[in-house]
Design a binder for these strands. Sequence first.
RNA 1: GUGGCCGUAGCUCAGCUUGGUUAGAGCGCCUGGUUGUGGUCCAGGAGGUCGGGGGUUCGAGUCCCCUCGGUCACCCCA
Length: 414
Amino acid sequence: MSFRAPKGTDDVLPPESRRWRELLRSWDLLAEQYGYAYVATPIFEATDLFARGVGEATEVVEKQMYSFRDKGGRHLTLRPEVTASVLRAYIQGGLSGEFKGAYSGPCFRYERPQEGRRRQFWQLGVEYLGAPDAEADLEVIELGYRYLLDCGLGDVVVHVNSIGDAPDRVAYHALLSGWLDERSHLLSKDAVRRIHTNPLRVLDSKADREVVADAPVPLDYLEGETAAHHDQLIAGLQERGIAHRHAPRLVRGLDYYNRTVFEYIPPSYAAAHNAVGGGGRYDGLSRLLGGGDLPGVGLALGLDRILSAAGQSPPARALDVFLVVADQERRSLAHAFARRLRAAGVRCDLVAGRRSVKAQFRAANRRDAALAVVIGAEWDRGMVTAKDLSSGDERTIPAGEVAAWVIGGPEGGR
RNA sequence: GUGGCCGUAGCUCAGCUUGGUUAGAGCGCCUGGUUGUGGUCCAGGAGGUCGGGGGUUCGAGUCCCCUCGGUCACCCCA
């Protein structure tokens, strides 16, 4: 074996690739229904964008970025997430006011791969910019929730929390740091290191779960308006029938969040990293990146995780028609017929080169075609023989009726 | 970055404990049985430097060391 895909990367091959495409398509559709416009940003950006946006002290920036210098000496990084890029694009493009953007594409993090954690992974996301209201948070959460339900994750629960605003946090951080300091002898090495750089992160560390179980929690220190925002959010979730749970120690690892943070947890997904998506509000990010004041909320979903949590749904047929060429002198005829069917919207294929009829039927079966259509002597009378590959039902019909049969079933041509 | 488990055919694995001549199975693939019929059945066939390197030995898939890869968990995130 000479070449393998790089560590932590996957090929998406049929038949799984069909489901993959379906999920991407329904994501595009759903985002459009909610009024989000498609956004594409570069897959690499200035390293500083992520260092500033995501946060210097985060795990992602500290040790998970694919960074390199290009031939011009620029410091670039394969995007580990896309929110910072969308903000950057908004600012750079001189956009103003409300903006709703949706994206999908690969992201990259250098980590030890395991179930649900790959070095290249596919994120679907939306960013709702310019909307400070809790209603925007709700819309974003609802959109992701709807999508996951559509994907077949019927039992997802949205874990929600509020980590407060910057002003609340100054006071709360001091309080939390102090509380943690007193117990530093009980904490893991990583936790101790974070007491002063990023104390919030300690709250959702698995290693320190027992110690931190009765630590002061951000929610108890919210100021009036921030608390109201959160109350409105919870009431809205209730009203919209979104299964949710309050998660007081949920904080998330990206520094730009404030107020609302959330994760989608499907209980059926047994992997260690059991969130299939998450997000939150990031009202301060725009300023951090050199833009004006601009509130925002967003979410990101892990396509690969959704796929493994949802399992494979019964796949639809891959092809409508597979042409079987009985007489080799009719090959070019068959190709012309294939072109006609395709133009009529029929998914149609045939083998390249001369193969026995038997081999062509085997191919039809393997390619998961619904119908095998034989091009042979009957073609001279304008007829073809069509065989339904699941029932074995076979009949000779006018060539012109094949497309109608595919679309309307055996009687569709009548 | 830390730790556990695993590397034999395209895939899933047996063989390794107790070293012995030509390395096996199932599935998949190709061909034929049916010179125009698949999916079932039968027959045949192709496909392996036993992950790589070194060592021990008369002899290594099997024992030892190193290395690379895979996987799971920690950590962290989608």
